[in-house]
C-alpha cells in the first residue's frame, strides 16, 4: 500500500471535519451560564437564612439534587449532547458523572455495580483535586512557619 503512518496521520487530520466551534461555544456559554445563574438564585435564596459558607454548600447540594433528578429522567444526557462543556463544567456535570454510572450499572448489582462503579468518571476529579489541595496544604503550612 502506498501509505506510511506519518502521511496517513496528516491525511486523517485533513479529512476530519471541524467542530462547529462558534455554535459549540454559544451552547456552552448559554447553558453553562444558565446553570450558574440558577446557582446564584439558589445561593441568594439560602443566604436569607445562612452564612456565605453554608449557603454555598446548600447551593451545591441543591444543584446536585436537580442534576440527579434530570439525569434519572434522561434529560441531562439530551442537554449534554448539545451543550458540551456547558453541562460538563458546572457541578451539575460532576453530579451527572456520579449519578449516570450508578443508574447504568444497577444491572451488575448494588455493591459490585452501583457501589463499585459510582466513581468511574468522577474518581479522578476527587483523587487529583484532593492531592492538589494536600500539596497546597503543605506549602501553606510551611509558609505559616516563617
Amino acid at each position: 500500500m502506498k501509505l506510511d503512518p506519518k502521511r496517513y496521520a496528516e491525511m486523517t487530520r485533513n479529512a476530519t471535519p471541524h467542530s462547529p466551534v462558534l455554535k459549540d461555544c454559544l451552547w456552552a456559554f448559554f447553558v453553562g451560564g444558565a446553570i450558574c445563574l440558577l446557582g446564584e438564585c439558589l445561593r441568594q435564596f439560602w443566604l436569607q437564612w445562612y452564612d456565605t459558607e453554608l449557603a454555598g454548600t446548600l447551593t451545591s447540594i441543591s444543584l446536585i439534587f436537580l442534576s440527579a433528578a434530570a439525569t434519572a429522567a434522561g434529560w441531562y444526557q439530551k442537554l449534554g449532547a448539545k451543550a458540551g462543556a456547558g453541562t460538563l463544567v458546572p457541578i451539575t456535570g460532576f453530579a451527572n458523572s456520579v449519578v449516570s454510572p450508578a443508574v447504568e450499572f444497577k444491572a451488575e448489582g448494588w455493591v459490585t455495580g452501583v457501589g463499585a462503579k459510582i466513581f468511574i468518571i468522577a474518581g479522578p476529579v476527587i483523587a487529583f483535586g484532593t492531592l492538589a489541595s494536600w500539596v497546597w496544604g503543605i506549602l501553606y503550612w510551611v509558609s505559616t512557619k516563617f
Partner: peptide
Amino acid sequence: ERQFRTPLDYGGKRTTT
C-alpha cells in the same frame, strides 16, 4: 456504549468523527 464508552445517561458531546 456501556462497555466501551460512558453510561447511557452521561451527558457528553460526540466528536465529529
